[in-house]
Design a protein around this nucleic acid. Structure first.
Lengths: 167, 167
DNA sequence: ATTGAAACCCACTTTAA
DNA sequence: TTAAAGTGGGTTTCAAT
């Protein structure tokens, strides 16, 4: 566990690259009035500390045929089954997020499906059959998402505890 | 509305670039045994049709000080307030996703907060004060997410209806 | 719709401060 | 921690198929 300072430059970099992963680092450098090497090193450090987890192209799931999305609260019959349930959930490709929850449900997952029939099929033929899952409640989301964005860097604390993953 | 064919090459490209937005297109080209120009044009087309929405670096929200995440189901007092409520939600930076829902709730949002106190503060001092929001129910997610991934391209249909956005 | 070549631009490393 | 310079490689365009 190490203390890591995130300064104004880091925030500016994060803001620029979190909106467009393909932006040339030299363009970031110009916007920040520093050298390309400086940006390169900052980004390397943000990667090493794990603050940057990776980068991805965002595919429009709606346009590729997945018109239905649902969040599902899962109640486990036995919390000791947690890890085993996670492994089974990973095998269901339509499950794209999996969270540990406190409160009413033990877990919370996000699922994409082509339509309602497909969603029901995934729940009945896959989720409810997983040993350890006692009960599910489905919160269905229809149509395209209204908006989605990354957390603004301006909300980020300046001093951050990180587990240092530098080699 | 146009019909758009997504073939094996498109899927392979999407698979590679959706995991790592910084992968050199020439490397994608080598993996696919086609020229760099072909990859360039395919990706351009996927962008124009809106199948690719963009690219982003993924920031570890937990590491930057947001240890709490919650999904919140929102009941509206009047569905006609929907758009106005969306505009107000956009002004709350901790709200990172907003969905239209069917069933128990009218809307479903995702929120990041620093801790429980912060979460409660956002709900009480921002969300419940928005005109049109009648009731909220919070499903709290704690700790880091267990897993998160993009929808596998292998689940994608081959024939896709898209609204063509080419200029 | 795909290619190869050309021109331009960028990423990354090393150097030095 | 930063900046400057060099090289190898990537991006992008274009004519041609």
């Amino acid at each position: 566990m190490a203390q890591h300072q995130i300064d104004r430059l880091d925030k500016k970099i994060l803001q620029l690259i979190s909106q467009d992963a393909r932006i040339p680092f030299l363009e970031v450098a110009r916007e920040c009035n520093v050298s390309g090497a400086a940006i390169h090193q900052r980004i390397q450090k943000l990667r090493n500390t794990g603050i940057i987890k990776g980068s991805e192209f965002v595919v429009d799931t709606y346009k590729v045929g997945f018109q239905t999305c649902a969040y599902i609260g899962i109640t486990l019959s036995d919390i000791k089954m947690f890890n085993a349930v996670v492994e089974e959930l990973k095998k269901v490709p339509e499950v794209v997020e999996c969270h540990y929850a406190t409160g009413k449900y033990s877990m919370f997952v996000k699922i994409y499906a082509k339509d309602n029939r497909h969603l029901l099929q995934i729940i009945l033929e896959h989720l409810t059959l997983i040993p350890g899952i006692a009960h599910t409640e489905t919160f269905q989301i229809s149509l395209d998402e209204i908006f989605r964005r990354q957390l603004s860097v301006f909300e980020i604390e300046s001093t951050i505890d990180v587990i240092d993953e530098e080699e």
